[in-house]
Amino acid sequence: MEKAFEIMDHTADVGIIAYGASIEDLFSNSAMALFSLITELEDVEEKLRLDVEVSGEDTESLLVEWLNELIYLVDARHVLLKRFVIESLTERELHAVCYGDEFDPAKHKMKVGVKAATYHMLELAKSDGYSAQVIFDI
């Protein structure tokens, strides 16, 4: 399998470059990259399931909204997620089912407090497959 994502450095913050054979893969891998920044994914079990729906102005903003929704769930619902099934995805709407666990300080290591996905240096590209660069505020 081709790599799903990589982490990139940015002076004040941190970014990801995610890849996907399809746009659905890209969204799912971006989410995985986000949670790999936040915690050690291998410590997260699939114990709960969350339905997530977001909308955006275009595919780029939909990606930012998607990641911001997941960041919100970490803070407000105290969950850590690791698997993301994209149920439907259009240019402006996304429905996904996410699997993960409730945050447990005894079991999960929090690596970075990711606070927001930004539009800064946001790049979404299509060649063979798709790739996206997103910078996070931490």
Partner: peptide
């Protein structure tokens, strides 16, 4: 003002 990225 930050000079090195967190990763670096």
């Amino acid at each position: 003002g930050r000079m090195l990225s967190r990763g670096a």
